[in-house]
Amino acid sequence: MADLPAHPDSADGPGTGSDRAAMTGGPRRKAMAGIAVAVVLVVLMLVLHLAGVFGPGSH
């Protein structure tokens, strides 16, 4: 009986685990970086507003 080919999701094949993780990690990493930058900007604006440096009445 002939051996069946390995399933693409199995860890038996060469390069299935790390290559697959590297391909899917890029967009997720970019999305998380974008969210982190947006949160930092919102917090910075909030702190500047509460300190009276940024916002209405700061002129």
Rank of each mutant, 00 (worst) to 15 (best):
M1Y: 14
M1D: 15
A2M: 12
A2N: 10
A2V: 15
D3Y: 13
D3V: 13
D3A: 14
L4G: 08
L4Y: 04
L4F: 13
P5T: 04
P5C: 05
P5Q: 06
P5A: 08
A6E: 14
A6V: 12
A6H: 13
H7A: 10
H7I: 10
H7S: 08
H7G: 05
P8M: 10
D9T: 04
D9L: 01
D9R: 02
S10Q: 09
S10H: 06
A11L: 07
A11Y: 05
D12Y: 01
D12V: 04
D12A: 02
G13P: 02
P14C: 01
P14Q: 01
P14Y: 01
P14I: 00
G15R: 01
G15L: 01
G15V: 00
G15H: 03
G17E: 13
G17M: 12
G17A: 13
S18K: 04
S18A: 07
S18H: 05
S18M: 07
D19F: 03
D19N: 00
R20H: 02
R20A: 02
R20S: 01
A21R: 04
A21V: 05
A21E: 03
A21W: 03
A21H: 03
A22Y: 05
T24D: 02
T24H: 02
T24M: 02
T24Y: 00
T24P: 00
G25E: 00
G25I: 02
P27H: 03
P27M: 09
R28H: 04
R28V: 07
R28G: 02
R29H: 14
R29D: 15
K30M: 12
K30F: 12
K30R: 14
A31I: 01
A31R: 04
M32I: 01
M32D: 02
M32A: 03
M32F: 02
A33T: 07
A33S: 05
A33R: 07
A33I: 07
G34N: 09
G34V: 07
G34D: 05
I35G: 08
I35K: 09
I35A: 10
I35W: 11
I35M: 11
A36H: 14
A36S: 15
V37D: 11
V37W: 09
A38C: 09
V39M: 05
V39P: 00
V39W: 01
V39C: 09
L41M: 14
L41Y: 11
L41Q: 12
V43P: 00
V43F: 03
V43Y: 05
L44A: 08
L44F: 06
L44P: 01
M45S: 12
M45W: 13
L46T: 09
L46M: 11
L46P: 00
L46Y: 07
L46A: 12
V47K: 12
V47P: 03
V47D: 10
V47H: 11
L48E: 13
L48R: 12
H49I: 04
H49L: 07
H49A: 08
L50Q: 15
L50V: 15
L50G: 13
A51W: 15
A51G: 15
A51I: 15
A51M: 14
A51S: 15
G52P: 03
G52I: 10
G52W: 06
G52S: 14
G52E: 05
V53K: 07
V53C: 09
F54G: 02
G55Y: 12
G55N: 13
G55I: 15
P56S: 06
P56Y: 06
P56F: 04
P56H: 08
G57P: 06
G57T: 11
G57Q: 10
S58T: 05
S58V: 08
S58E: 04
H59M: 13
H59K: 13
